[in-house]
Amino acid sequence: MGAGGITSSGNAKAYPGKLTSKVIGSSIMAACGGLIFGYDIGISGGVTSMSPFLKEFFPNVYSKQLNTHESSNQYCKFNSIPLTMFTSSLYLAALLATVVASFTTRSFGRKISMLIGGAAFCVGSLLNGFAQAIWMLIVGRILLGAGIGFANQVIWSLYIC
């Protein structure tokens, strides 16, 4: 008797697939695509709660954080459009970049798409690392999102094919 109470007659063919290095490599690449998103969620959540970061780039949010008795709403504690743009710009850019990357991958191949995604990710990382103003943070996050969107699309196309 099999799982769930189903009986096998014994005439079923064995699955002919093998665990090859290509399957293992593709699976690792697909897992890394998910890791990129998870890592960013952890980083951006941690950074936006750091006082020095808030004091430098979002002074209104920092002053509201010091006066926590001012807001009793725990769902929307700081109500800051620039902070919301900082947080969500990466995800929106990744969504749009995934759509663009599907056409790029189909037209020019995976290698070019990965190079475009990697370049966008590197420029976005540099821009965020040397940011002196909010616009630099947001543009950097948009470029990071574009890089993640391209990488995830290429990774999943590799995994599916």
Rank of each mutant, 00 (worst) to 15 (best):
C32S: 14
I41M: 13
F37K: 00
A14K: 10
T98M: 13
H69C: 02
I116E: 03
G33I: 02
I43L: 11
K55N: 14
G2H: 09
S44G: 01
S89Q: 12
V139R: 01
P59K: 04
M136A: 10
R106Q: 13
I28G: 00
L90T: 08
S49L: 13
M29T: 14
M29K: 01
A14F: 07
Y159C: 12
L54S: 01
M114T: 09
L158Y: 07
L127Y: 03
I112H: 01
V61T: 15
F130Q: 08
F37N: 02
Q132F: 05
C122Y: 06
L137M: 11
F130C: 09
S125E: 09
G34E: 07
T104M: 13
G109R: 04
M1C: 08
N73P: 02
N152D: 10
N128Y: 03
L95A: 14
P59E: 09
V47G: 03
A119C: 10
G149S: 04
L92E: 01
T98K: 02
R106I: 08
I28E: 03
S9P: 00
F58W: 05
S63T: 13
T98D: 05
G147H: 04
I6Y: 11
E70P: 00
G117E: 06
N79R: 12
V100C: 12
W135G: 01
A30I: 09
L35T: 13
G5D: 13
S125A: 15
T104F: 13
A120V: 06
L158M: 12
K77L: 14
A93Q: 05
T20G: 07
I155L: 11
P52V: 08
A120P: 00
S89I: 14
Y15P: 02
Y39Q: 05
W135K: 05
K18I: 07
L19Y: 11
F37T: 05
S27F: 10
F58V: 09
L143M: 11
I116M: 11
F53K: 00
S125R: 02
N73Q: 10
G147M: 08
V100G: 03
F78D: 06
S102R: 05
M1K: 05
K77H: 08
F78C: 06
Y75L: 15
S49H: 12
M136G: 04
L66H: 01
N128S: 13
F53G: 00
F103H: 12
V100S: 12
A30L: 14
L127C: 09
L66G: 06
T84H: 09
L35E: 01
A119Q: 00
G45S: 15
P59I: 06
K13T: 15
S49K: 14
S80I: 08
L83P: 03
I6H: 11
M136E: 14
F57R: 01
F121E: 06
S9E: 12
